[in-house]
Deep mutational scan, measured.
Amino acid sequence: PDEFRDPLMDTLMTDPVRLPSGTIMDRSIILRHLLNSPTDPFNRQTLTESMLEPVPELKEQIQAWMREKQN
């Protein structure tokens, strides 16, 4: 489902985090971005790792969907 895909890389998220802007991304992708630029890739506001907020409900939904697909 589209809501499980990272908006920057269009890959399935495994550890979704919410940026201060409200955008949800995969943690590994935003951390890689932050190594090059300490900004939100969508609005260029300053962004640090400590500002990332886990989204455990979405992570659980993704994991359940993945388990379902394996069966």
Rank of each mutant, 00 (worst) to 15 (best):
D2S: 11
E3S: 11
E3T: 08
F4L: 02
D6F: 04
P7A: 11
L8F: 11
L8H: 04
M9I: 05
M9F: 06
D10F: 05
D10A: 10
D10W: 02
D10H: 06
D10S: 08
T11P: 05
T11G: 04
L12C: 09
L12G: 04
T14L: 12
T14C: 10
T14D: 07
T14R: 10
P16R: 00
P16W: 00
P16S: 01
V17M: 07
V17L: 00
V17N: 14
R18L: 05
R18Y: 01
R18A: 09
R18F: 06
L19K: 03
L19S: 03
L19A: 01
L19C: 05
L19I: 00
P20V: 00
P20N: 03
P20M: 00
P20I: 02
S21F: 03
G22V: 01
T23R: 14
T23N: 15
I24L: 02
I24H: 05
M25W: 02
M25G: 03
R27M: 00
S28H: 10
I29M: 03
I30Y: 06
I30T: 02
L31T: 14
L31C: 12
L31M: 08
L31E: 15
R32Q: 14
R32T: 15
H33M: 12
H33Y: 09
H33E: 08
H33S: 08
L34T: 07
L35A: 15
N36V: 11
S37F: 07
S37E: 12
S37V: 05
S37R: 09
P38I: 04
T39V: 12
T39K: 11
T39F: 14
D40K: 01
D40G: 00
D40T: 01
P41L: 00
P41Y: 00
P41Q: 07
P41E: 04
P41A: 04
F42Q: 07
N43C: 03
N43E: 05
N43T: 15
N43S: 12
R44Y: 07
Q45K: 13
Q45G: 12
Q45Y: 04
Q45F: 06
T46K: 13
T46L: 14
T46M: 14
T46C: 11
L47W: 02
T48V: 06
E49A: 14
E49I: 13
E49G: 08
S50L: 05
M51N: 07
L52M: 05
L52H: 04
L52R: 01
E53W: 02
P56Y: 06
E57I: 01
L58D: 08
L58Y: 02
L58N: 06
L58V: 07
E60I: 06
Q61H: 15
I62R: 02
Q63S: 14
Q63N: 10
A64C: 12
W65P: 10
M66E: 15
M66Q: 13
M66A: 12
R67I: 12
R67N: 13
R67L: 14
R67C: 10
K69C: 13
Q70K: 15
Q70A: 14
N71Y: 14
N71Q: 14
